[in-house]
Design a protein around this nucleic acid. Structure first.
Lengths: 239, 239
DNA sequence: CGTTCGATTGATGTCAGTCAACCCGAGTGG
DNA sequence: CCACTCGGGTTGACTGACATCAATCGAACG
């Protein structure tokens, strides 16, 4: 009874935390939040588990409570094109709120992940009741569009070192911890994952990272960690 | 007095048309629409004229009434990365509704273009009054995200013929006219434009189009028109 | 200690970018 | 009316960078 044992520390208060953590519910007061919390269904996924299949049905708004996931599609060549890394507080499935349609990408847990789900029809009722949530969603979608546009600009450039640098900077922003020597990054993706994120071969990622290390711009610690020693240099690379 | 002469046929009824044409105002009734129309400022741009500068201020929602524009950013290599072709009924500047920030791309008129503008602060008031507009915006933004995700998937593939094919199919969907031999497309972009759209060299676009013509899949008529003879073949190319 | 999976490094081939020449049609001006 | 020019498009030759294939390494884990 893993589910049960988990639920020992998954009290109502935890649920609230989940809802509170999400930007789109920020403006709600405690009562309203309680209302939201009642609609939430929680589910746990283990590393490598598929959460959503492209072309599968998806009729809920999915909010990451803990852990992280990757959203990806298959390219022609049979590789994955990773579109998003979603972490705590991020959500997906918003496309299916208004129109019932198939999911437009696969979603897979990168580690043990807790998902809070709200059925689309419930969520729509929420929106009717609290219109300010809509504005929050517009805001979040705008940010996502920003990111996608940035990503396209990146993939448009032929300069592969720039793409690798951009990814490092993105991860630094999202996962970086300031340290004396520089910013320490716990990489959410393997080399292959990074490759699939920026659309190159995994060997190329290896090579580019090695070069950056030789140049003294980064320092790799094992496979999963990187320290950015010279952030300026990376930024110059990107622009 | 170009402005004045233009306004001869730019009556209130025209304004309404402009508003009515836009998906986000679809649900409004006549009275509500009249309210919206009062807020609209119109402006005309000639071919090649810049409408918005990246890093410039943009404090209005911009709706295309007539004509079409390209939205683009500069890549590292000094080329343009075209992000969108906006046509009648499309809008941009929605990112600046909630947060005042700089525009994130240049926008340039591809032909003589009429723009309807609504100041962000006015538009926000509208949203408060007619919350259903928010939902429409969420819907539109979702579509845009779909397109961007599609585009990224496309740019992730190394197969350039697939990219060219995808663009042709996209244009066919948007601008295509059914004919006996196939779908006739009036290209909105030059070869260089197409190249900047899919992130390749302009010569490469030329070459790929020539190949597609040799294979009997398309038929080029001058530089500005293409007939798709074998749509299936293009679709196979893409997937 | 061995196995396995991911990462690295090296060698080779391929394909798109680049440079350059040329073409073509639309203006333009004599 | 024709010659010239100019911008965009096409075509060819060459080059270089990345993909691919293959071998090896190395760390994690049983």
């Amino acid at each position: 009874m893993k589910q049960a044992s988990h639920c020992d520390n998954c009290t109502l208060c935890q649920h609230k935390l989940c809802a509170r953590r999400v930007p789109i519910f920020q403006e709600l007061n405690q009562d309203e939040l309680n209302h939201v919390v009642q609609l939430i269904i929680r589910k746990k996924y283990s590393k490598g588990e598929m959460i959503v299949f492209e072309d599968g049905l998806l009729d809920s708004l999915m909010i990451i409570n803990r852990g992280q996931v990757k959203a990806f599609r298959d390219t022609q060549e049979g590789k994955e094109q990773i579109l998003y890394i979603f972490s705590e507080g991020d959500f997906f499935g918003e496309k299916n709120l208004l129109i019932t349609q198939k999911a437009s990408y696969h979603v897979e847990a990168l580690e043990e992940t807790l998902i809070c789900m709200i059925q689309s029809r419930d969520f729509l009722k929420l929106l009717k009741e609290y219109p300010e949530i809509s504005l929050k969603i517009v805001e979040q979608l705008s940010h996502r569009i920003d990111r996608l546009e940035q990503m396209i600009r990146n993939m448009g450039t032929k300069n592969i070192e720039a793409r690798v640098s951009a990814v490092l900077l993105e991860f630094a922003m999202k996962y970086g911890k300031e340290q004396s020597e520089g910013v320490l990054i716990e990489l959410p993706l393997s080399r292959e994952g990074i490759a699939n994120y920026i659309g190159v071969a995994r060997e190329t990622v290896s090579r580019k990272l090695s070069i950056l290390q030789e140049e003294g711009i980064i320092n790799m610690i094992g496979n999963k960690k990187v320290v950015i020693l010279d952030k300026k240099a990376l930024e110059n690379e990107v622009e």
